[in-house]
Structures are given as structure tokens and as C-alpha cells.
Design a protein around this nucleic acid. Sequence first.
DNA 1: CAGAAATCCTGACTGC
DNA 2: TGCAGTCAGGATTTCT
Length: 276
Amino acid sequence: MPELPEVETIKRTLEQLVLHKTIEDVTINLARIVRSPEPDQFRALLKGKQILAIDRRGKYLLFRLSSHYTLISHLRMEGNYGVFNSMDAAATHTHVIFHFDDGEELRYRDTRQFGTMDLVKNQDVDQLKFFRNLGKEPFDLSLTEKLFYEKIKKKNKSIKAVLLDQEVVAGIGNIYADEILFRSRIRPEMLANNLTKPKIHAIYENMKIVLREAIEAGGSSVKSYVNGQGKMGLFQQQLYVYQKHGTPCLVCGDEIVKTRVAGRGTHYCPKCQKLR
DNA sequence: CAGAAATCCTGACTGC
DNA sequence: TGCAGTCAGGATTTCT
């Protein structure tokens, strides 16, 4: 479940490890991970490419390559990257290996096999349907409170479902949706179009605060997440509600409960988070 | 068209 | 101990 803070941390750690390296060859052990182009062409195109930069957009990782190509990687639930020497034994569920010309390799592992990779020309990146419809970054200055308010007010579904909607804002997943709503003192099942202006203001501010704090802590390791250096994040120590059901609320002492909202496990404090 | 639900997958967990 | 059943979840597809 790498969300924006985890993907940002992976980006920053991988920058230290693979920038300027040249891909000599690629091994694809599980073809379903490579969404486009066909695996043979994916491999052929990557041979000889140098990694010039790494960017992040929402939960997508973008490897900027030489010859005007970009490798777009989505980790979905349990995808992760690690850099190893080619002599090191590969862990189970290692599905794609990028062999560098210096004897090191970047390995992609993914227990649930949900992750995707797309290799496209730079000029085509913004035309991809999953990028064209992607919402703004939470820290994008052009995502003003007014614009955010208008987007929220249009939605006739739970505020939790709206925060998870990548077309509204990019990068928020199940952990941070619950944490943002706790800090905003809003019950996750509240309908977005019923929220008052002060409530939407609270979400707008807390979204940025929570995500920034999580990035500073290196993300949340609640399940399998580790960064590009194999290290766990620390933000799970600062979570108020996610996976905290059955324990006392750190603010009021009432018991945190777990329900289902927007088809997802949802955690909240019944006392702190009011229905109106 | 919007929103809800099913789908992909494996490993951890539950109950008998 | 073993085994069937359930759950977890991001984005896409399918259904209502």
C-alpha cells in the first residue's frame, strides 16, 4: 500500500542508488507486470538506456531515461524496489530485474503481482489515459482551497471515497484518507456534498500536514513497505486511527472502531469524528 | 454519466 | 496440525 509519502521516499532513496546507471539488460520473470509495450519490445527498448532522473506523480514512479523515454511504475499494494549485486540471491516474487553495466541490478518485487510498468516516449506521457485524468498533487500551488472546495462539493458520495479518488487529488490511499479525516474530525461516511466550508478547509490543510509529516518520517510501514534501501518507515508510530481499532483514541480515550466505507476497511474515533 | 461492486493476487489469519 | 474460508486493497472493468 505505498501511497504518496511511501512512493516519494522510494523515489528519494532510489535516486541515491541508481541515478546515472546504464541498463545493460532486463529480465522479466512475470510478464503481467509489464503492461506496455510487449515484454520483448520492453526489454529491447530498455537496453542501453541510462537513468537520468526519477520523478513521482501521485503514486506513480517515473524513471526518466536517455533517448527520451520514461518508465512509469505503479507499485499498487506490495510492489517494492531494491538494488543488489548480481551475485546476490533473488528474493521470492522478484518479477523484473534491470541489470546495470556495473554488476548491480535494480529488482522489482511484488507479492500480489498487482503492480504495473509502462515504457513510453516522453512526449506520450501526458497523453496516457491514467495520467490525463489524474488529479493535481496535494502540494501543487494551483490546487487552491477554492478549487478543492468545488471538486469536493460536486461529489455525491462519502468523503472517504472522494479522498481515495485519484482524479480529485493524486496520491492519497487508505491509510492517509483515514488519518486526514481523523485530524479533520469528520466521520468517513459523511457525504462530501454535505460538508461545510470549515470542514473542507480542515481537510485541505490536514491533507498537506499529514502527507508532509509522513514524508519526513519516511512513510508508514504497516505491512510490507520498505524504501529503496530496504528500510522501514516510521510514520506508523504517529498514526491515530489506521489499524488502531480496539485501542483508545489518543485524543479522547474512546475506543477506535473499524467499519467499511467505500469498500475499504475504515478506522475512526466515534467521539472525535462527528457525523455533522 | 455517476457511483457501486466485482476483479486481479498471495499470504496472514480464523475457526473447527 | 491441517485445511477451508475470509480478508486485505489500487486501479480498472463491469454493472446498475
